[in-house]
Amino acid sequence: MDAPPQPCAADSELELARARCGALHGRLAASPDLPRHPALRSLLRLVTAELGFLASAPRPDPAAPLSSNLPHLAALHLLLTHPAVRSPSRLAPRPGVDFACAFRGRPAWALVSASNPARLAWAPRGGLRARVAAVLDAACGAPPATRPEKLLLAFSRGVGADVALGLAEGFGAVETDLLAEFVGVSEDGNEEGWVAVSFNASEEMRSFRAFVIDVVEGAGEVLLPPEATVAEGSHDEEVPLGFEGAFGAFVGKMWRESRELVNLDTTALVAIVSGISNGGVGELMAAPEAVTRARFKCNYKFVMDQVIWK
């Protein structure tokens, strides 16, 4: 009687992938953000398809690595649910871009890689350098309403020294710490002034390396016509922006006291005109900065600028 076939390493790899994909599917399906999160809904469909592929995959060839999109899907999930990532778009809004979002309060396009660093090519044609250059060109040529200020490149398994150097020298990329938002400071500091910190990030996030590239130097600076500029030494004068009355005075103060572009959407304009946005100025100014930042998150500066302008 023939002995039953012994499980090989390839079988174990497939079973592990099935288990991990099932766990990811369960987390996505149970997420309370799923109904209002188009990117997570798109990701759930991709994970469902990948789970079906892995469930029906034949016994793999021991000599060949398992071919699966699971690492990339898992990296997307980690980045989409990162505290610094807000309002992500649907997945793959344009070629080469995984999703658009607000990263730490600034419009950004995200590029996610789950490739083995040893196999991540930089210089050859079709390598990472070409992809980054193509996305950067697309970002610079995008309409102002959809143009990002930053490119966020996230590598879930790290990167080699050649890639990090190429990003820095070729595109002015700056490495950023994705664990920064996970640091919690305890209230029980000791007499020497030391405080304890704790990390709530998953183990997978610890292997991430991320880089940020500015799409346009000085992005976010308001560009006004020549007649709207303020002459040196005349900062106390009204800025002739072409608006009259109280609203003109408001815009003039906005230009003098804040150089960041503000999107005056309908909600903000209604709040400005009606004055309801300033009903709690005293309470906002009296609250500790940490409390206000936790309350308004990426809108903190906009809210505080309204208080100052008033």
Results as ranks from 00 to 15, higher is better:
99 F>T: 01
59 R>V: 12
56 S>N: 05
105 G>N: 10
107 P>V: 10
55 A>D: 14
99 F>W: 00
81 T>H: 06
73 L>D: 07
61 D>R: 00
94 R>W: 01
102 A>L: 09
69 N>E: 15
105 G>E: 06
82 H>R: 10
87 S>E: 15
95 P>N: 00
60 P>R: 00
94 R>Q: 08
67 S>F: 07
102 A>F: 07
107 P>C: 10
64 A>L: 05
53 F>C: 08
69 N>M: 12
96 G>N: 13
86 R>P: 03
90 R>I: 09
95 P>Q: 05
102 A>M: 08
64 A>N: 03
57 A>Y: 14
106 R>P: 00
69 N>P: 04
104 R>K: 10
54 L>N: 04
93 P>G: 02
92 A>M: 12
96 G>Y: 03
65 P>W: 10
70 L>N: 00
77 H>R: 02
99 F>S: 00
108 A>E: 12
58 P>I: 02
88 P>T: 05
88 P>D: 07
93 P>L: 03
101 C>Y: 01
56 S>D: 07
63 A>T: 03
78 L>N: 09
76 L>K: 11
71 P>G: 11
58 P>K: 05
69 N>A: 15
59 R>W: 09
53 F>K: 15
66 L>G: 11
99 F>M: 04
104 R>D: 14
81 T>G: 10
84 A>Q: 05
57 A>M: 13
97 V>K: 03
81 T>N: 08
80 L>Y: 02
87 S>F: 15
74 A>E: 12
53 F>E: 14
104 R>S: 12
104 R>C: 13
68 S>E: 11
67 S>E: 12
94 R>K: 07
96 G>E: 04
70 L>S: 00
59 R>K: 15
102 A>I: 01
63 A>V: 02
72 H>Q: 14
74 A>P: 04
61 D>M: 02
75 A>S: 02
108 A>K: 07
56 S>V: 07
104 R>M: 06
98 D>W: 05
104 R>F: 02
99 F>R: 00
89 S>V: 06
77 H>W: 11
106 R>G: 00
71 P>S: 12
65 P>D: 06
54 L>V: 11
64 A>T: 08
54 L>G: 01
73 L>R: 08
71 P>H: 07
83 P>A: 11
81 T>Q: 10
102 A>D: 02
97 V>A: 05
98 D>K: 12
86 R>V: 09
60 P>C: 08
70 L>F: 06
66 L>R: 09
96 G>Q: 12
82 H>W: 06
102 A>Q: 04
55 A>K: 14
107 P>E: 07
